[in-house]
Computed example of a mutant assay.
Amino acid sequence: MFCAIVGGSDSNAKIVYRDQQVTAFLPLMPATRGHTLVVPNRHVADLTDITELESRQLGAAIRRTARAVRAAVSPEGMNIIQSTGDVATQTVPHVHFHIVPRWADDRMVLSWPTEAAEDDAAQAETLVLVRSLLPKSTDDVSPDDRRQHLSFIQAIVTRMSQASSSSKTWLLPIITLTYGYAVTKEQFWVAVLGMLAVFVFGLLDANYLKQERAFRKLYDKVASGGDIPTFSLNPSLAGPAGSRVNYWPDWEDIRSWAVAPVYAPLILVGVAIAVWAHCT
């Protein structure tokens, strides 16, 4: 629904401000007088997935809009609220900031826990972990470091592509031997063994493709100035927040033109040979 407002297709939208990067508008159900939303024009669901440039643009737009709202309705206070994820009460999967003017007698209720979630020792461990994973600002990354980082990622992409080609090359003599032997000796189980080899190599090839795609996303994010730690080779950092590396190929990898059209016919040939050998 926010994309419709940004794109101008919602004629009922109450636009406060719009430029090429950011849009501010009044919500359908304002919590208080002057309640305003600020969103990036690019559709992005998770705050950690916005680029550093977008974060600067959003910050500037929030400041401008908040000053205008404060001047317009003269609140006693103000909340700037951003929620990411269902458990954080995000209901629209598009990054947005609430600018909420506050008065002592308004209807807003914000409640913080009265007890600490971590003791000092646990908090110290969290501090070390967060510090170790804190990305450098793109302003602190030299062009030479970025080029070297991209070259490391590209080397992995190239290696995944070469491994994919090698898996097909290794499979050919195996299926030639097994299928040929199954035909000449009318051996059902040898044909099944050949099909098993095709399945294993196909799964391996799909995994290579999955990893290649993941590292290409990492390459694009580093090249665009995304918040990736310098020289990090963790492809999950280019995915949604909280994602982890999963080494099992997805359906889109299996049905890719580089996998399904190659291995599916070989499986069918094996099935045909196995059926023939079983019936003769």
Rank of each mutant, 00 (worst) to 15 (best):
M1N: 10
I5T: 12
D10R: 02
D10M: 09
S11V: 03
A13T: 00
K14S: 10
I15T: 15
D19A: 14
Q21S: 14
V22K: 00
T23C: 06
A24M: 06
P27G: 10
P27C: 02
M29F: 05
M29A: 12
T32M: 07
H35W: 04
T36C: 15
V38Q: 01
V39H: 03
V39K: 05
V44W: 11
A45L: 02
L47S: 09
I50E: 10
T51W: 01
S55C: 05
A61R: 01
A61L: 02
I62L: 06
R63D: 10
R64S: 06
T65F: 00
A68G: 07
V69K: 02
A71I: 06
A71W: 02
A72R: 08
A72Y: 01
S74E: 14
S74G: 13
G77L: 09
M78F: 06
M78N: 00
I80T: 01
I80K: 04
I81L: 13
Q82N: 15
G85C: 11
D86Y: 00
D86P: 11
Q90G: 05
V92K: 13
P93M: 01
V95H: 12
F97M: 10
W103H: 11
A104H: 03
R107F: 12
V109F: 02
L110T: 12
S111H: 01
W112N: 14
T114V: 14
E115R: 13
A117C: 00
E118H: 13
D119K: 07
D119N: 15
A121F: 10
Q123T: 01
A124T: 15
E125M: 13
T126H: 12
L127W: 13
K136D: 00
K136T: 03
T138Y: 05
S142G: 15
D145A: 15
R147K: 08
Q148H: 13
F152A: 02
F152C: 10
I153Q: 00
Q154V: 03
R159D: 15
M160A: 07
S164C: 05
S164Q: 12
S164M: 15
S166K: 15
W170R: 13
L171N: 03
I175H: 12
L177S: 07
L177D: 10
T178A: 15
Y179R: 04
G180K: 13
Y181L: 12
A182Y: 11
W189G: 07
V198P: 04
F201Q: 13
F201H: 03
G202W: 02
L203H: 03
N207C: 11
Y208V: 00
E212T: 03
R213M: 11
Y219A: 02
Y219G: 06
G226E: 09
D227G: 11
I228Y: 01
T230I: 14
P235C: 08
L237H: 09
A238D: 09
P240D: 12
S243K: 10
P249I: 07
W257V: 04
Y263S: 00
Y263F: 14
A264D: 04
A264R: 11
P265T: 11
I267C: 06
L268W: 05
V271D: 11
V275L: 15
V275K: 01
W276L: 10
H278W: 05
T280F: 11
T280V: 08
